[in-house]
Design a binder for these strands. Structure first.
Length: 257
DNA sequence: AGTAATGATTTGAG
DNA sequence: CTCAAATCATTACT
């Protein structure tokens, strides 16, 4: 149920439609609740999302069809058997129930995988750190001016933040971020200036080097754009598993004969 | 290529 | 909630 709601919210499981426009609109509605200013950045995202959506629906339909086919197949088998031995309606009902449960658990896997794919997509495209742009010269000038003229107490009030945000053409939270970064980095600079006495320089360099080497090199080979395909393939893998489960049920039923 | 700068996020304290 | 601190991810510079 939760997965259903989430897929619905992401615009994946919404109303059925083949063309890209509905998916795009759904994606815009899903992601654009707070801010929808950069349309070029989102077009890629929307394309990928509608791709996921399409695969999801194809797979879902396939499962549905397979489920129906298999159900009728089993029903036929049971009908055939009813000629040689008595079969109660209760038993038939039970079989159908088992089949439906099996297939719905397979659908669950599909939904889970789709959710994961969407989450990865979101984190790839909607994480603001990935599309950072430096503020323009004038904005940083204004911010610096305020910072250095209030150096004794560089904590702008809410109103001052709004004022600065308006002047610089950025949001209030961006102003807050800037001051947070500025305060800590200013303090750090002062500290390192005072410690800089001859032999300490190499240590400083080492300190700055090590965290970067640790952090940046390996992290995103795992989850870049190719990963969408990975997820998609894992969906297909699930469908294989589904077929196998189906085959299992089939073979179990086959022992009836 | 390697490094510094820099905006954004996460974490933890108050 | 705000803030400091650490960290991440991108951009700018050499």
């Amino acid at each position: 149920m939760r997965l259903d709601n989430m897929l619905l919210a992401e615009g994946v499981a919404g109303p059925e439609k083949g063309g890209g426009s509905a998916a795009a609109a759904a994606a815009a509605a899903a992601s654009g609740g707070a801010g929808s200013d950069n349309s070029v950045e989102h077009s890629d995202y929307r394309a990928k999302l509608s791709q996921i959506r399409q695969i999801y629906h194809t797979e879902l339909e396939k499962y549905e069809q397979a489920c129906n086919e298999f159900t009728t197949h089993v029903m036929n088998l049971l009908r055939e058997q009813s000629r040689t031995r008595p079969i109660s309606p209760k038993e038939i009902e039970r079989m159908v129930g088992i089949i439906h449960r099996k297939f719905s658990s397979i659908q669950m896997q599909l939904k889970q995988s789709t959710c994961e794919a969407v989450m990865i997509l979101r984190s790839r495209f909607l994480d603001a750190r990935r599309k950072r742009r430096n503020f323009n010269k004038q904005a940083t000038e204004i911010l610096n001016e305020y910072f250095y003229s209030h150096l004794s107490n560089p904590y702008p009030s809410e109103e001052a933040k709004e004022e600065l945000a308006k002047k610089c053409g950025i949001t209030v939270s961006q102003v807050s971020n800037w001051f947070g970064n500025k305060r800590i980095r200013y303090k750090k600079n002062i500290g390192s200036k005072q410690t800089e006495r001859g032999a300490m320089a190499p240590q400083n360099k080492m300190q700055f080097l090590s965290p970067q080497n640790l952090g940046s090199s390996s992290s995103f080979n795992m989850s870049n754009s190719g990963d969408l395909f990975m997820s998609v393939q894992s969906l297909n893998g699930d469908s294989y598993q589904g077929a196998q489960v189906g085959a299992n049920v089939q073979s179990q039923v086959g022992t009836f004969r």
